[in-house]
Computed example of a mutant assay.
Amino acid sequence: MTTPQTTQDVPYVTDETFTEEVLRAGVPVLVQFTAAWCPSCKQLTPVLGALAAELGDRIKAVRLDVDHNPRTTVAHGVLAVPTLLVFRDGEPVRSVVGARSRTRLLRDLDGVL
């Protein structure tokens, strides 16, 4: 795989939009649970955007701010940021905690993307 030259903007979802944007998406969704004060989250966002651009229609990537969306954060047992959850058919299928390089993230998500 080659590294893409551009990254995709990673949009935010909220407690109110999570069901439609993530659980009913029709494709696997990689959700970054993040916070504005989290430096590791800021490092991970461009990696996530590049990965989403590279994988195209195979996956959708979104972010959820844990400070402003406690209902979804608690419902999915997120205790640390950044946490990445992959949802397929409305169910979480993989969880990764902490910032990752593109290579390590691909390895950690192998089999679910």
Results as ranks from 00 to 15, higher is better:
V93M: 14
T34Q: 04
V13P: 05
T19D: 13
L109T: 13
T73F: 09
R94F: 08
T3N: 07
S95F: 14
V78F: 12
C41F: 07
D65V: 06
W37I: 02
H68V: 10
F18M: 05
R88G: 10
L48D: 00
D110A: 14
A80H: 15
L51E: 02
A61F: 04
T7C: 02
V62R: 01
R94L: 14
G77D: 12
P11T: 03
K60G: 08
D65M: 05
D110E: 14
G56W: 01
D15K: 05
V78M: 11
R107T: 15
T45P: 04
A50K: 04
R88P: 12
G111V: 02
G77H: 10
S101C: 09
L44Y: 08
V74N: 10
I59C: 07
G98D: 14
R88Y: 10
M1L: 15
R88I: 15
V29Y: 06
T73G: 08
G49M: 01
P70G: 10
V22I: 13
G90Y: 07
V27W: 08
V29M: 08
D110C: 04
G56C: 02
L51W: 04
R104V: 13
T73C: 09
V13L: 06
T14V: 05
D89T: 09
Y12A: 11
V97F: 12
